[in-house]
């Protein structure tokens, strides 16, 4: 882990501990600081731009409701990303269920797409790759997204996922294999 992320981790831990004691200023600061990484995390996993901000808000509601489950002696980042991952999983489940029983109508959206925030990696993903990524199990998708799209090192990604580097490599490898199987030979895991 780099010095800056280590310093950030230490600061977030301290802010969260203060927030648990009812310090509103520390909590406000913490939420403001974690908003950009949470948005990035969600946008790299939820490819429906209309739902991304809903999921971000659900992450923050979960963080608020589950704040008593954080313990100050444990790292904060894996705790935060576990909450975020669960919110994304909930969204994916609800969407799958809805997709199974509903048919969407094609209509022009009144919102100008140019005014919407563009996901950082969306332009790099083809619709086929997005679909294939969505079909991966959560743990494998997270590993692939963190390493290939967010550019994290294996150690950083493992720290964020709360698992060992070896376990993360295995997840990523399985993810690559599944992507290769669903996309044919066009996908390269290099």
């Amino acid at each position: 882990m780099s010095d800056s992320s280590s310093a950030k981790e230490t600061r977030w831990r301290a802010l969260m501990t203060s927030a648990q004691q009812g310090d509103c200023v520390a909590y406000e600061k913490l939420l403001a600081e974690i908003l950009p990484p949470v948005r990035g995390f969600v946008r790299n996993r939820v490819f429906d731009t209309g739902a991304q901000e809903d999921v971000v808000q659900n992450v923050f509601l979960s963080v608020h409701r589950a704040r008593h489950t954080y313990r100050s002696e444990r790292p904060f980042t894996p705790w935060l990303y576990a909450v975020a991952r669960n919110a994304v999983t909930d969204y994916t489940r609800v969407r799958m269920r809805r997709r199974a029983r509903e048919t969407s109508l094609d209509f022009d959206v009144a919102v100008d797409p140019a005014t919407l925030p563009s996901p950082p990696h969306e332009e790099r993903l083809s619709p086929e790759l997005s679909r294939a990524l969505e079909q991966l199990p959560d743990t494998q998708r997270d590993a692939v997204v963190m390493i290939q799209l967010e550019g994290l090192s294996v150690a950083e990604a493992a720290q964020r996922a709360g698992v060992s580097a070896g376990a993360l490599k295995v997840r990523a490898h399985r993810g690559y294999r599944a992507l290769r199987a669903s996309l044919g030979t066009g996908f390269d895991d290099a």
């Binding site: 648990q20 009812g22 310090d23 509103c24 406000e28 939420l31 923050f60 608020h64 954080y70």
Partner: peptide, 13 residues
């Protein structure tokens, strides 16, 4: 986020 901050109460870990 503003609402969550206003809603903040101390919690026992």
């Amino acid at each position: 986020l503003q609402e969550l901050c206003q809603d903040l109460t101390p919690v026992r870990p």
